[in-house]
């Protein structure tokens, strides 16, 4: 399946993502004082139907995850999944959800944590996908984030990911919040129908470099 993108194109895409996520990290820290570092993304071109198995292999089994799903639409469109290990979610809630809003909210701590993780997830996904789209000279819009549960495993993932036709581009990055000492995983799955456009945008980027 690799033949849809040449090695050069994949390198360029990796570079684009790296720069895009770097910009996203800078903006997050500048705009909202959320200090995030993102690892160099891993990019895979897969048959869409193999995605659940792929994700299963990419997620270490040990902790249970809180998982958020968000669709984005543009010429670059697809799904993003943000996974935060349960323990890490608690740290985020302690850092970003102020204690008074928790007390006023009449929520149990689990629900409160979930709302905070969704809020932070929405912002992190928005920044990363937004900057990447910007690098590809696209503008994306987002659907509301959906919380998929607090103990997501491969079985649930498999049920959730619709069987798609064709090819998908999957990006994986690990992000850490340095001020919360917490981390999570971000997957972007570019839909089959945006592959052609993405390839073109990448080629234009390569031409621009030459």
């Amino acid at each position: 399946m690799q033949q849809t993108f040449s090695e050069l194109e994949l390198d360029a895409l990796r570079e684009l993502m790296n720069v895009g996520f770097g910009l996203a990290a800078v903006s997050l820290s500048e705009v909202i004082d959320l200090r995030v570092t993102l690892t160099v993304p891993k990019i895979s071109v897969l048959e869409a139907k193999t995605i659940p198995d792929f994700l299963e292999g990419e997620i270490d089994r040990a902790p249970a995850y809180s998982m958020i799903e968000q669709f984005f639409f543009g010429r670059f469109s697809g799904t993003s999944f943000l996974l935060v290990p349960k323990e890490e979610g608690k740290k985020l809630a302690a850092l970003f959800g102020d204690e008074s809003s928790y007390r006023d909210s009449e929520l149990d701590f689990g629900s409160f944590e979930r709302e905070v993780v969704v809020e932070i997830g929405n912002i992190v996904i928005g920044a990363c996908v937004g900057k990447l789209a910007e690098m590809l000279k696209d503008r994306v819009t987002f659907q509301p984030p959906r919380y998929l549960g607090s103990d997501v495993d491969a079985v649930k993932l498999r049920q959730h990911l619709a069987e798609n036709e064709g090819v998908a581009l999957v990006f994986k990055t690990k992000f850490s919040f340095s001020n919360a000492d917490a981390y999570g995983l971000l997957f972007l799955i570019a839909a089959n129908d945006s592959i052609e456009w993405t390839k073109k945008a990448v080629d234009e980027y390569i031409e621009g470099l030459a």
């Binding site: 903006s27 909210s105 629900s111 409160f112 929405n122 928005g126 900057k131 503008r139 819009t141 984030p145």
Partner: peptide, 14 residues
């Protein structure tokens, strides 16, 4: 800055 939408749920924010 990012063009995202933000949600203020009644559950959390009243």
């Amino acid at each position: 800055s990012f063009g995202i939408s933000a949600y203020f749920s009644n559950r959390l924010h009243k």
